[in-house]
């Protein structure tokens, strides 16, 4: 795989922290290219740690299984240290996240009672 400076996937993450909870707003692609940035951005909240990480997918334009795997990993890591992860606004990616079992490790309100 090669990278192109002008066509490769991009991801922006903005954070808002309140009451030991952090909301991370994702904008762009959660893909193989952007997974390192995603992990690097989330890691400080696992190190401290915070009680809850909320991933807001409202601005996500593309998801690949590798990206979903990284999100699952964060959910598992925070659970191990007594915290939790919540994923919101998954919209059209509901089936993809359900198939990968995100709801098994994180709170995903849109997948409660979801029938694929």
């Amino acid at each position: 795989m090669t990278h192109s400076s002008f066509l490769q996937d991009e991801l922006k993450i903005s954070s808002k922290e309140e009451d030991n909870k952090v909301t991370l707003k994702l904008e762009g692609a959660l893909s193989a290219t952007t997974v390192p940035y995603f992990r690097q951005t989330v890691q400080p909240y696992l190190d401290r740690p915070v009680a809850e990480i909320i991933l807001d997918f409202a601005g996500v334009t593309k998801v690949v299984s590798r990206g979903v795997g990284a999100a699952i990993d964060v959910a598992v890591q925070i659970k191990k240290i007594g915290g939790r992860m919540r994923v919101e606004n998954i919209g059209k990616f509901s089936r993809s996240l359900y198939i990968q079992g995100v709801h098994l490790v994180a709170d995903v309100p849109e997948l409660e009672g979801f029938e694929p």
């Binding site: 299984s65 795997g69 990993d73 198939i99």
Partner: peptide, 20 residues
């Protein structure tokens, strides 16, 4: 196993395609 260990690298692309 995933719920215990997490996902260190990669995903489940083939599994996902099969389901879709």
């Amino acid at each position: 196993l995933i719920s215990e260990m997490g996902v260190k690298n990669g995903g489940f692309g083939i599994h996902m395609i099969k389901a879709l």
